[in-house]
Design a protein around this nucleic acid. Structure first.
Lengths: 160, 160
DNA sequence: CTGTTGATTTGACCGAGTCAAGACAACAGG
DNA sequence: CCTGTTGTCTTGACTCGGTCAAATCAACAG
């Protein structure tokens, strides 16, 4: 994309400031990070940035449509720059790592429930919970309790 | 189900106590409530119950498989007794109301992503965001302003 | 009835995030 | 380039949801 962050900020009606460019820089390098990590990383570029400024910047970016906020259960909110497309997330139960998943099916039948109980639905949010490759390998002990293995859980959440 | 709460608690290796029965009673009447509401309602049955006791009871119930915890983005956690089956939730952006949705499609292709980035997925969590019937009618709404941006979200999640 | 052990109470504490007031800087207009 | 306006950032207090730890209490096995 040819458009610069300056352009995109201004297009969204936002002023171009150092804190904002710093946060955008961090988000470009790290696709899914929390506010605290952003603050720490942004400080390398703009040392005086305060935690509250990060919250303010992130809110402005989200409201301006430049960033998206995701809130995995039990963890602080994460921010990403991929907006406008429909993609979901894989979250590691152990380390919290997040990966993007493109929704491969065009129709996505499961995402338009026939029974909406009178709700006017405008978004379907999907989170896939599991164990990432790294955490799986670092598990020295082979699980013996089969009932607790992910395999037993499949069929509950995935597909059904 | 013929089984009593007493039985189910004991089966899960939990002692039968007044606070636990009080919380289970509240959850039976109110299918999706937060810890604070549970505490208030439970006090009608067991006046001395403390907020922390409610957290403790809820944790025990979740760990024992008697209750399920759901954490809608930007709102306190909710608890429900429906466990073991696969169902998802509709959440109202304005009032926070929650309704159950059975996943009607058997195969649910969107819920088993082909590209799992090395993750071993064991659960797919789906949340449908929208406006409930009540809030749609009473457009005078008191905004329970969530961090999400309803307008920007339209057309992102559902079907695609 | 009594002892053990798990559950509850009480109260301090924590992390994530918000709110508000004042200082500051981006940018429009001259 | 300078200046004023107004949006943004800094600083610091505060809220909310929830956890942690020590001491008391009660479930239930014997």
């Amino acid at each position: 994309m040819g458009t610069t962050w300056d352009d995109r900020l201004r297009t969204a009606g936002l002023r171009v400031t150092r804190p904002r460019l710093a946060v955008l820089g961090v988000l470009t390098e790290h696709p899914h990070v929390d506010a605290d990590t952003i603050a720490t990383a942004a400080r390398a570029v703009h040392p005086s940035i305060s935690p509250q400024a990060v919250y303010g910047v992130l809110r402005a970016l989200v409201e301006g449509g430049l960033a998206r906020r995701i809130e995995p259960a039990g963890a602080p909110a994460l921010y990403e720059l991929r907006v406008g497309d429909n993609h979901h997330h894989l979250v590691c139960r152990e380390c919290g790592a997040v990966a993007d998943v493109d929704c491969v099916v065009g129709a996505a039948p499961c995402l338009s429930p026939s029974e909406t109980a009178g709700f006017l639905v405008d978004e379907a949010e999907v989170v896939f919970w599991g164990i990432c490759a790294d955490c799986r390998q670092s598990r020295v002990v082979v699980r013996r309790d089969r009932s607790a293995t992910p395999a037993a859980a499949i069929g509950r959440g995935v597909g059904a």
